[in-house]
Design a protein around this nucleic acid. Sequence first.
DNA 1: AGGCGTAATGTAAGCGGTTACATTCGTCAA
DNA 2: TTGACGAATGTAACCGCTTACATTACGCCT
Lengths: 340, 340
Amino acid sequence: MNKNNVNKSVTMRDVADHVGVSVATVSRTLRNPEVVSPAVRDKIAAAIESLGYLPDPAARALASTRSDIIGVILPSVSNNVFADVMDGIYSAVEGTHHSVQLGYSRYAPLSEENLIRVFLRQRPAGLIVAGVDQTEAAQALLREAGCPVVQIMETGSNPYDRMIGFSHYDAARAATAHLIAQGYRRPGFLGARMDPRTQRRLHGFRDELRAHGIEEGKRIQTTTRPSSVTLGSHLLAQLMDLAPETDAIFCINDDLALGAMFEAQRRNLRIPDDLGICGFNDMEMMAAAEPSISSVRTFRREMGEGAVQLILDALSGSAAQEKVVDLGFQIIQRRSTRGR
Amino acid sequence: MNKNNVNKSVTMRDVADHVGVSVATVSRTLRNPEVVSPAVRDKIAAAIESLGYLPDPAARALASTRSDIIGVILPSVSNNVFADVMDGIYSAVEGTHHSVQLGYSRYAPLSEENLIRVFLRQRPAGLIVAGVDQTEAAQALLREAGCPVVQIMETGSNPYDRMIGFSHYDAARAATAHLIAQGYRRPGFLGARMDPRTQRRLHGFRDELRAHGIEEGKRIQTTTRPSSVTLGSHLLAQLMDLAPETDAIFCINDDLALGAMFEAQRRNLRIPDDLGICGFNDMEMMAAAEPSISSVRTFRREMGEGAVQLILDALSGSAAQEKVVDLGFQIIQRRSTRGR
DNA sequence: AGGCGTAATGTAAGCGGTTACATTCGTCAA
DNA sequence: TTGACGAATGTAACCGCTTACATTACGCCT
């Protein structure tokens, strides 16, 4: 199909011949320019430019012990929380000589373990994984990865290597505390997917209720189905049917919150008077909604950028002391929880 | 899968020694099992399993003329239209021996051209690019790529290789026709980003108005800023201020439509009576909104899956005749355009 | 002038696979 | 029995780059 391949690609050999030096010198001006004399360096740069030379990453990876790939393993493609993280990752990688390789575990730890294995096989420059809920085997792999490993989305006391995120438990507690502070006395909880991260939010919610001596009753509605706006509507419907006393809800993400808001409107519940609503993540739409919806702001883009930065720092030896970076969160109050 | 030690990874050499054959035989049982005797084949398979051998993709790519990477170049990380496409792509790639390499052009043709160059350098198994608006140089590269190339998101008459998508022009015309059929006589247009694809939707809108002899007046509100729900609110506000006669809007995506709906509610415009709203893409939330919002359904996941399938077919020689696959679209009517 | 240290460059051995070509071996027809 | 032949396997040359080590060139000191 391509014996007479038109992109007879130009190799380092071509550049070397063009300048009249050895390939080693070309390689050096690319890797350690400082050991090459300025005159030669300039000629090589010119040749690279005029011939349109681009290094072959496979050859580079094979010859050196490192590829320049930063592997990223996330649970979900479609969750827009991760889209923001990816945005941060890509923007931090831009301008470096690194490239990103993305894998999706679909929330399946075994699938994640397998991806880790495959990714490590390429001797990546670094690895970014989500959270702390890896399988035993995956944990072992990550601890011996032989490259910087950054866990994102969470904080914790025992990272494999480094970690950047925030405490889902604390964030959920704070959101719940906010609802209570606004005078709501019968807050409910809407959760979907219920992966470990979501579970931690539920714990936070429960503990905060308990701290205030509030019974949770039947006001915790969860499902393992993936989150969606529609699901938010369903869950609120379910909640109000089972626990009509509910006067506020904490939703594990903004999609659910939005769906719940729509459902509340359908039921002629006044927001925030009859029902307070608080989302999670503070996606852009929450501010635009009518009424605007309170949420817990998280720093997703920063998480992605920070993760890449941690890897680059480790690679360049300029790594900071702290193993764990806590980006925190912020309760953003809007009309939907203006209280009673 | 016993030896988890990735640092001194097990190579084909190890497998060969373990079985007592040459590496060539191991390589063959991986690439063309049929030329290896069943007995040896089984022993090798067992050794691979027990040693936990994983091939080194870099070495493979270097030695063969093809890597097993499918390159994907999209304009935007955060646009959730592309998230759905990616979902389709990843799910179609799963189970094959291919992997995905993702690049983002940020809507910049030159950046796209550069990515194409870099990706082609890896002799990818295939390439997926968005749309038809490449630079001259990029077009030349793609026509001579030496691997299957699939353009997604659009249809057209002159693909570089293959194409799968739908007509944005037709879709916009159909949506506009729908508004008119519902009795709206002064439809407006809200557009953001205004990349070439969006422009085509605008053309469709305009042509349909013209076909009905409707003046567009000042009812076309666009901006080059990236789309968001908040921006939808702003644009509607602007539109109603400049052209209060507007009785319906076609929004180039669902985010804008949602934002416009919120703004309409703030202004106490009744939907659909005072203002009809039609979005584009039919994201999941449109059905859940209150009122539910009409939209143009597009088949994004299918586009991603289809694109990968086209590449796999081309690779296996079982490619179909048609160069262009039109996935079409569907007008989904909901309450927001129930007419007057 | 001869010797030496240093900076700049060249030489060549891999990295882990693929694959054209060579070799071995068993089978079968003559 | 023997030679021919095809199937199975081995041998070794790459693929394009990196890098340890060898070599060269040159300036400076004694």
